[in-house]
Amino acid sequence: MDTYKLILNGKTLKGETTTEAVDAATAEKVFKHAANEHGVHGHWTYDPETKTFTVTE
């Protein structure tokens, strides 16, 4: 398992979190669910070198 990071750049919610996942696709599902639960919808990017997802509203 690897550690993946999410950076939230929402209009009303900003922050960072991490998750352990077997691959980037699994981490993305976890992060998108969490972002949706917090009402953050926007443009997603992924940097494979740093294993970091970013969502920007």
Rank of each mutant, 00 (worst) to 15 (best):
V22D: 07
T52S: 04
V55P: 00
H38R: 14
L13F: 15
G10I: 09
K51E: 01
T45S: 13
P48I: 08
T26P: 01
A35R: 02
A34P: 02
L6Q: 01
T3V: 12
G39C: 06
Y4H: 02
Y4L: 02
L8G: 02
N9L: 14
H41W: 12
T50K: 07
T18L: 08
G15W: 15
K32C: 09
I7D: 02
H43V: 15
T52W: 02
G15R: 13
T26H: 13
A24W: 12
P48S: 10
M1W: 12
T19Y: 11
T12Y: 14
M1H: 09
N9Y: 11
A24R: 11
T19L: 13
V40T: 03
K51T: 03
L13K: 09
D23C: 05
T19Q: 05
T52I: 06
V22I: 13
V55K: 01
D2M: 13
T56Q: 07
D47T: 06
A25Q: 11
V40H: 03
V55N: 02
A24M: 11
E20C: 13
A35K: 01
K5Q: 05
T17W: 15
A25H: 09
E16A: 08
A25E: 12
E37W: 09
A25M: 10
E16T: 11
A24F: 13
A27M: 01
E28W: 15
V30A: 10
A21L: 02
T17V: 15
T17E: 12
G42H: 02
E16L: 08
W44H: 01
T18K: 08
K51R: 13
G15M: 15
T54C: 08
E37G: 08
Y4I: 01
L13I: 14
T19K: 04
D47M: 05
T18E: 08
Y4A: 01
E49A: 13
E28T: 03
D2R: 11
E37R: 11
A21C: 08
T12Q: 10
T19W: 07
A27L: 01
F53E: 00
K32P: 00
K5H: 10
P48Y: 07
V40R: 03
Y46D: 00
K14Q: 12
E16N: 05
T54A: 04
L8Q: 02
G42E: 01
A34G: 04
N36S: 13
N9K: 10
Y46L: 02
F31Q: 00
F53W: 05
K14H: 11
A24Y: 12
G39S: 06
H33Q: 14
V55A: 03
A21H: 02
E20A: 09
H38C: 15
K11R: 13
D23L: 03
T3N: 05
F31V: 01
K51W: 04
T45H: 11
T26N: 08
D47W: 05
N9T: 07
M1C: 12
N36R: 14
K11W: 12
E57H: 05
T3W: 09
F31G: 00
K11A: 12
T12I: 11
H43Y: 13
G15L: 15
T18D: 05
E49R: 10
A24K: 12
G15T: 15
V40D: 02
T54Y: 08
E57C: 08
T12E: 10
T12H: 14
N36T: 10
A21Q: 06
T54D: 03
H38L: 15
A25P: 08
Y46V: 01
T45R: 07
Y46S: 00
T45Y: 08
A21M: 03
K29C: 10
Y4V: 01
T3E: 08
G15C: 15
V30D: 05
F53T: 00
G10A: 06
H41L: 10
K51N: 05
V40S: 03
K11V: 14
A34D: 06
T3D: 04
T54G: 03
Y4N: 01
G39P: 03
L13E: 07
Y4S: 02
E20Q: 14
E20L: 14
T19D: 02
E20R: 13
A25I: 10
K51S: 03
T56G: 04
Y4P: 01
V55W: 03
E57L: 06
D47Q: 06
L8D: 01
H43S: 13
A24C: 14
E28D: 04
T54E: 06
W44G: 00
F53H: 01
I7F: 06
G10S: 08
E49I: 11
M1Y: 12
T45N: 09
N36E: 14
L8T: 05
E57P: 05
T54S: 05
K51G: 03
P48G: 06
K32V: 08
T26A: 14
T3G: 04
K5A: 04
T50Q: 06
K5M: 06
F31A: 00
A35D: 01
E49H: 11
T17M: 15
E49S: 13
H38P: 02
T45W: 06
F31D: 00
T3P: 04
P48L: 06
A27C: 01
T26R: 05
W44M: 04
N36H: 13
A27H: 00
T45C: 08
N9R: 10
T56F: 08
G39E: 05
V22W: 11
G42V: 02
A21G: 03
E57K: 03
H41G: 07
T19P: 01
K14A: 07
E49N: 11
V55R: 01
V30M: 10
K29H: 10
H38E: 09
K5S: 05
N9H: 09
T18Y: 14
G42K: 02
F53N: 00
E16Y: 13
E49C: 10
E28Y: 15
T18G: 04
T54W: 07
K32T: 05
T3Y: 06
A34H: 15
E49Q: 11
G39L: 05
T26G: 09
Y4T: 02
A34M: 15
K32G: 04
G15Q: 12
F31I: 01
E37M: 14
L13H: 14
K32Q: 09
E28S: 06
K5T: 14
L13G: 07
L13N: 08
I7A: 03
V30N: 06
